[in-house]
Design a binder for these strands. Sequence first.
DNA 1: TTGAAAGCGTTACCAC
DNA 2: GTGGTAACGCTTTCAA
Lengths: 347, 347
Amino acid sequence: MSGIADVAQRAGVSKATASRALSGSGYVSEKTRARVLAAARELGYVPSTSAVSLATGRTNNIGVIMPYTNRWFFAEVLEGIQAALLERGLDLTLYIAEPGTEGRRRIFEDFLARKRFDGLIAVGLEPEDHEIEKLTAIGRPIVGVVSAGPHAGVVALDEAGAARRATEHLIALDHRAIAFVGGGAGTHYVSVDLARLAGYRQAMAEAGLEQSIRHVPSPDSLPGGYEAAVDILADSRSRPTAIIASCDEVAAGAIIASRRLGIHVPAALSVVGIDDHEYAEMFSLTTMRQVPRDQGARAVEMITAQIADPDREPEKVTLQARMVMRSSTSAVDPARAASAADAARGR
Amino acid sequence: MSGIADVAQRAGVSKATASRALSGSGYVSEKTRARVLAAARELGYVPSTSAVSLATGRTNNIGVIMPYTNRWFFAEVLEGIQAALLERGLDLTLYIAEPGTEGRRRIFEDFLARKRFDGLIAVGLEPEDHEIEKLTAIGRPIVGVVSAGPHAGVVALDEAGAARRATEHLIALDHRAIAFVGGGAGTHYVSVDLARLAGYRQAMAEAGLEQSIRHVPSPDSLPGGYEAAVDILADSRSRPTAIIASCDEVAAGAIIASRRLGIHVPAALSVVGIDDHEYAEMFSLTTMRQVPRDQGARAVEMITAQIADPDREPEKVTLQARMVMRSSTSAVDPARAASAADAARGR
DNA sequence: TTGAAAGCGTTACCAC
DNA sequence: GTGGTAACGCTTTCAA
């Protein structure tokens, strides 16, 4: 439990000099610096974080707030953040603010106000208006991942663009009866789904396929996709020739469902996802890749820059997903395509 | 940014009295307490955590260290911990210490030594000997989830018992050729797998089925289970009539594989898992349920008790999994059972 | 280049 | 019951 006073004494200098030597700020002769460092090492000196914070106003800690941690995207972002913070010697305090819970209310009410952090990274938070107020009231830099804050930095994916390009891929393979599944039911991760859905609609519209637009909502999960796909695929007359899923988990669920129903992917049904989830490979899923881990790392870069210079203009970064071709999509069988399209139009 | 001095002034009392009134410790008359509280509310006073920590030696913060956060079990435990801490007004700082990484080394070397927490919860950490040294050197209470520390509290599952009972269930359904899949390859979550495997072996041995014991290692993941199952099920002569999976994700992978291969579950193949993962329902998986969220909550109870009274003997809790019957298991077809058992014996 | 001393915002001891 | 004041462990002027 030795403090800086012990180190100073052992090195034969004052606390002030010891502090300068250890923190590397201010003039210290090479000789004394070496002595101080040696003394510190010998004593196993570790500065008291609370004392440092009190004196400097810096916590050397970053807050991370997200609605869940048990979904792929969030967990990956979190690990990306953690790894990047680790490199910089910064700690991470985590707030899991599940929408609509008493816990979330308390986090915004009490926990954030404690300002245990120099900056806050908000991942897919989608805050309500009154929550945004609280956020800005903290008076600390904020960087959003996914969600955009007014005066905050943001690192986001071009969600609509990703969905649009995925849909275009399907259209280029002569698919016409293309359903969008996922996004909508029981999910709180709304804006992303909306954007992806919009991208799908746009691509369909631009190809003159407004009539064939079909959105089948489902929870953004493997079971969700499974259930929804079972419904869609049951009726062979109205069955689409292709599915674009709101995310890879839904896509995987759809593929499992089609296997169970004996519908061959991609021969009888093309499926494309978004995310490049860890399951994508196993299902040979063609998908639009995003790398949430990198987004987390990027957010850390941005927040530390903001902390170092609070006056700097917050960055707004938009990433593009990259298509990863596997084998869940193929050109449609011309005969089926026509009849399926008719059926879709007829409903 | 108002401090306790401002509150005191506004209430017309001394800092000392204000402090007592706010923290609720020490004698303060009802009248002045009310005045102080009112003043604090009006000023939006929030105590500085670093000042409080410095003065009291308490951080009001709990450290959580785990190897991953993107696996079901860990994410669930984490959310359980977070929720329980929230109720108690405690913050949570997270350390993700992936085995074998430079990051993990730094966490043990530097980060933990900062003692930013009053107590540490270690989830499935499986620390090396030199890491255990660091852990005890911190001089703060520690509670392990899954893994047992020497002088720490523990909340664990009877892993072997869970696997044993699952296996017994299969045996009771007249299965003889029962393979254990999962646990072993590329996983760092070793001791749990070992325990579960041991439970399987024990049940087999007790039923006189030593000869039929068959362990097929695979990563503890859905793709892992899928790959392994494809291998096992390919040869219809050596194919087991039942599979016990090291965890539900592996079980789900096995079920997906059997669907793909046209092997009906449970008619042609029984599958039982362990965990009661969120996917279990979708696959109608019979499994041994554990509730990691509750384990997290329990760990919080234990760590706060330890902090309140460091002299108390650390608790060691062992939980029992409960079997959840769904429809992935059924009695074996007598004819198949015999031939499969022969085949298994013959390999 | 170094040292003395004044904070940083609380709590807690000890008189009153 | 209440108030003055010395910690808590560090950083940071300001002089020397």
